[in-house]
């Protein structure tokens, strides 16, 4: 007996979810492996890399060797690191000597706030503009939105951020220039506004393109013509089109989240926001390997988790669509994002 939950066949859904989670696990393990092994691919002695900017005395090198078990076989070192990672234990920062997870935590909060705000902005504005462009196909507003979207998807986020910073903060004085303010929530939100818009510009533009082409496809469909031929209200026609276009748009949400987490590194640096990205960039410069590894793993896991969650949601909303378009449909043939 096939058990149904709404339109979803439960056994099929369970199989799909299990498959998708397994893929997620494989991706995360592979990523963690790559991130960890980079330290060893680097030319020279890993102990020296871990010295960072301290003075490399023989005693210090010996201590580091012991602390990081550098004389153990590679795989057992990796296993130990991964096990620590499960408990958010990434060792100590070379730069500050403080625990890596304590160092990262406050930065992570800021980055999450930033990403969430820009997710909201890009989702609302991107989808709305995409629909507006499709509905006004060939008109001026379509042209303007399409060009803006092309610029948004092509321009690197830090370059766009710099232009925004100069125009809106420096010249027009509409927004603060640097940092996240004096600590009050309202002030922080105020400081995050322009960076969030910058982040949203790039990924929102992708959403515009995906939404526009999905809605155009639905508008040209036979069922649309047939609904119009029956004098069904335009509102209801648009609702049907949006429902049919939604899997294509929703699937891109995974891409959007990946783009947000990827670009945040650069945008934070432009606006001097003390988030994960800024910490990553400065830790890279300081060769603070444990911090770099921890942040990279954290961001990579979030990116993979986001796309997994989105895929599962899309499946539950419309299983047949997923079956038609395959497990991971990344927008059209050429839609992708800087991440």
């Amino acid at each position: 007996m096939i058990r149904q939950w709404g339109d979803v066949n439960i056994r099929g859904a369970a199989r799909y979810i299990a498959k998708r989670i397994a893929e997620f696990a494989v991706s995360v393990v592979a990523l963690s492996f790559v991130i960890f092994s980079l330290l060893y691919i680097a030319p020279g002695d890993p102990a020296r890399s871990l010295v960072g900017t301290r003075k490399a005395t023989p005693e210090l090198l010996a201590r580091i060797r012991e602390q990081y078990h550098l004389d153990d076989p590679f795989l057992s070192q990796y296993g130990r690191w991964l096990e620590g990672a499960f408990h958010f234990d990434f060792g100590e920062s070379i730069r500050s000597g403080a625990s890596v997870s304590d160092t990262i935590a406050p930065h992570a909060v800021v980055t999450f706030e930033l990403v969430l705000i820009s997710l909201a902005i890009s989702a609302v504005v991107g989808v709305a503009c995409g629909i507006a462009a499709a509905k006004g196909r060939g008109r001026l507003r379509d042209g303007a939105i399409t060009v803006a979207a092309l610029v948004g998807t092509s321009a690197p986020s830090y370059a766009a951020g710099l232009v925004f910073l100069y125009v809106f903060a420096l010249k027009l004085g509409l927004f603060p220039i640097y940092g996240i303010g004096n600590g009050s929530a309202a002030d922080e939100l105020w400081h995050l506004a322009l960076p969030a818009v910058t982040l949203a510009f790039g990924v929102g533009a992708l959403l515009v393109q995906i939404t526009r082409s999905a809605m155009l496809k639905e508008a040209a469909s036979d069922y649309t013509v047939f609904m119009r031929a029956r004098a069904i209200s335009p509102l209801r026609v648009t609702a049907a089109q949006m429902k049919n276009a939604s899997p294509a748009i929703l699937t891109s949400a995974g891409l959007v989240l990946a783009g947000l987490f990827g670009s945040t590194v650069l945008v934070e640096s432009v606006f001097s926001i003390p988030g994960l990205g800024n910490l990553l960039a400065s830790s890279v410069t300081f060769h603070d390997v444990p911090v770099v590894q921890a942040i990279a793993l954290l961001l990579a896991v979030f990116i993979c988790a986001a796309s997994t969650a989105v895929d599962i949601c899309v499946y539950l909303i419309n299983p047949s669509w997923v079956q038609r378009h395959g497990v991971r449909w990344k927008g059209g043939r050429h839609e992708r994002i800087h991440a």
Binding site: D222, Y223, A229
Partner: peptide
């Protein structure tokens, strides 16, 4: 005026 379209496979909203 009512209309019946050519292709029955695409004339109906697949999600309704």
């Amino acid at each position: 005026l009512g209309m019946v379209m050519q292709d029955p496979f695409t004339a109906l909203d697949p999600l309704k």
